[in-house]
Structures are given as C-alpha cells and as structure tokens.
Design a binder for these strands. Structure first.
Lengths: 223, 223
DNA sequence: CGTATCCTTGAACCATGTCAAGCAATGTGG
DNA sequence: CCACATTGCTTGACATGGTTCAAGGATACG
C-alpha cells in the first residue's frame, strides 16, 4: 500500500517523483483504541499522517487531569510542531478510533519544505490555522462558562466529525474526554449535559449524543 | 532609515538583493501608547515588524473583557497568521510602549516564502513556537488557579522583558492588563498580588513590580 | 488644580470543583 | 456462562475560589 498519496491533503500538489521518494521512506503503523502514537516529552524522529481513524492530542496538567487540545482525522498530520522546532512533543497522542498512521522521517519533511515552496506554504497554513484556533480557545476558556464551552465543544465535534442521519455525533467520547475538551471536571460535564437534555437541545444515549436543536446550541455557545 | 535589516531576526540570512527589494516595498510607522496597529476582524494587507517598542495582542470576549494573547517586542512580527491564511485578524494589536513598526505587503512575504526555503522554514518555526505556547496556555488556564497563573505570568514577563538592576520588571502594565494576561478579573489580580507581597515574593510600587524571590515564584507557578 | 483613570478593599453571591456513594455497563478469568 | 473486577456514569452534599458590585482612596495627567 502506498502510504502517502495525492489525496492526502498536505501532500497535494507534490510531483510524482516527490511522492515516490516519500513513500520509499515512510512506514505504515496500526493502532487500537487507547493506544498511544507518541508521548508528551519524547523526541520525535518524524511526523505522523493519519490515513484512517481518529486520534486525540492531550496534555497532562500538574494534577494529572487530561486536557484535550484537538483531534486528528484522516488526512491530518501530527507531530510537525515538535519536528519543526526540534523540541520534544508537547502533547501525547492517543487513538480514539482504530487508526492507521503513516510515519515520515523529519529529514524528508525538511527536504520538502526547502525544495518546494508551495509545500512549505501549505504547512505554514496548517500551523497558522491551528494557531488561530488555539488563540480562540484561550479566550474561550478564560472568559466563558462551562455550559457555554460545552455547547461550543459539541458544535466543534459536529464540525469535525459530522452527524449521522439521526443527528447523532459520529464520535463517541467518554464523559471524561468531554471534560478534557471543555476543561472542567467530569461531574460538571454530566450535570450540564443533563441540563441541555432537559432543555430539549440534545438527547443522550450512553456515549452517543444527538444534537436536536442546533440553533439553540449555537445561541448558547456565543453567549 | 532602512526598515528591514539583517539584524531583525526573521530576516536574517536574506541576500542583499532580497533585503533591498523588501526595503523598497516597506513603510515605517510610529505609534504612541494606547494606539492600535490593527483591529481584530479587519483584513490585513501585509505584516508588521516591530523595530522598537512593545505591542500587545488582545482578543475581546463576548462581555468585552480583554484577553491578552501575547506581546511583540523589537524584532517580532505581527499579523502573519492572518496574512498567511488570508483571514481577518483574530486579535487587535495595541501599543504598550511607544513603537516604531515596519509594514510589509503580503505579496512580498509570499514571494519570499516561495523563493527562499530557509525563510519559509524560519517563519514556520515562529508559527510552531507560538503554537506550542498557545497549547500550554490552554492547559494552564483550564487547570491552574489564578494565583498559579499570576506567578507564571510574572515569570513570563521576566523572560520577555527582563529585570532591571533592582529586579523590577522592565514592563509596566496596568492591573487590568495583568488580569487580561492571567484571564481573570482585575480585583482578583490585585488580591493575589497583595498575597504575593505579604509572602515576600514580590514587591509592588505602583505599576512597577519587583521579583524578590524568583525560586518561590517558580515553585508556585508549577503547582 | 481638577478630572479622569486606576487601584484597593469589603461583602455577598454563585459557579464550579471535590468528595462520597451507589449504580450501570463492560470485560475477564475460572 | 457466571461471578467478580474494573471502568464509567450519575447524583447529592459541601467547600471554596472567583466574580461582581459598590464605594472610597490614590495617582496621573492636561
């Protein structure tokens, strides 16, 4: 199987020769739910591209609580921040849904950046997008209430993973993971989910969450 | 005066010809304390390089409270995120200390990125560094107490602006600005500053803050 | 020298975190 | 296939850190 293809967003626009070279030097890896792709604090020797599956980026605070920074889905790359600045990984990446991941050594990445201006620009765009979202995130957590952030988180999940035909989110997260996204205690998430349920905005079935009233949810998220 | 020089970090390593071209196309601007370089939500036509002075990046939340995302000092660039992804600015930049700023049109920036792989890489490194800090920031605000974050903020200010010979921070910020960094109410900052004072960790003289016991401050910040 | 801005403190209130306990669901080994 | 263990979910009671409001004092600036 070719690991890196024209279809994978960031590698769009590479020449056949560049692609051929990348595939020579890259490796496919498989992970089950709960497994770790790489650990916070370790030195990465390259970047990882998600071919299939869902991976969460998390950071452990002093008390051990896990803060979820973002998710990687099919086509996303992981670990480029550490690779680029040559630092240890600032997050741990754990698999949420069985994943196939492609590993690409740093030197290949650097070669591409230096030789292909368009590629460098795409990478730069990815970094800048993430930066914008991270900045938003800081302001949100600092200024908004837990309930507002929970509403936002649900909308973000919808944006990232879509809804199925019955308006259920296509990802199933534990309450603890939801708490990790929102930046709060598990119990708080549970209570606010119940409230949203009572207000007929969502419906909950175990880990499956149905977004019943997206308009109200949006109103709530922008308060 | 030449606006862009070899001394300005990001432009290090450019050829004489590239520098000459940049200077042909860039403009110098001056700002007093409180003035705005550009507003959140506006489309930027280029990036801004700080030649001299201090600028804060801020975001206004729903209730109008201002969250300070970071600072730019001599040699730093501002607005590249918006320029790169071609979005409106996600922050407002306001001058804290009288500043001289150089404006460089986007097309010049893009030309450099595409033609000079090393330059693209430096930009990428800047973006990645900011990204790492933003991620840290998210976790901190989500998990740490106000006092801990205040301690961290003071250490960050030390790192960014250094101390003078008497261990006073070389920036003077209002309590409200401090609150904007920490992500809390002005009153909370005041109360926690008083506590730190009572614990002989800092000393306060109007807006001037002296870091008396940096070890204790560090211990406090990592709790 | 007066006005505006900033700083400080107290008191009341509230959102959120923490602790504890019980239940549900899921998985594992005998 | 059942019993037990583990993990996740839920709820209640309580503690508390932090915000908000109000009022007065200090400071800076034109």
């Amino acid at each position: 199987m070719t690991c890196i293809s024209q279809h994978t967003s960031i590698f769009k626009g590479l020449t056949d020769k560049e692609l051929y070279n990348l595939n020579l030097n890259s490796t496919l890896l498989s992970f089950k739910r709960g497994e770790t792709v790489y650990h916070q604090g370790t030195k990465l020797k390259g970047i990882y591209c998600v071919q299939q599956g869902i991976v969460k980026f998390l950071k452990r605070g002093a008390d051990g609580r896990e803060q979820i920074i973002r998710f990687a889905r099919t086509g996303d790359i992981m670990g480029f921040r550490s690779a680029i600045v040559n630092e240890t990984a600032c997050t741990t990446t754990k698999v949420i849904e069985e994943s196939v991941v492609c590993f690409l050594p740093s030197q290949e990445l650097f070669k591409l950046i230096k030789e292909n201006g368009e590629f460098a620009l795409s990478l730069l765009k990815i970094a800048c997008n993430e930066l914008g979202e991270a900045n938003d995130h800081v302001t949100d957590i600092a200024q908004k209430t837990v309930k507002t952030r929970l509403a936002e988180a649900l909308l973000d999940l919808k944006k990232n993973f879509q809804l199925d035909e019955d308006n259920f989110l296509k990802v199933n997260l534990t309450r603890e993971e939801l708490a990790g996204i929102v930046g709060t205690a598990t119990e708080s998430v549970i209570r606010h989910l119940s409230e949203l349920k009572a207000e007929h905005i969502i419906e909950v079935n175990g880990r499956r969450i149905r977004l019943k009233d997206i308009d109200k949810l949006k109103k709530m998220a922008s308060l």
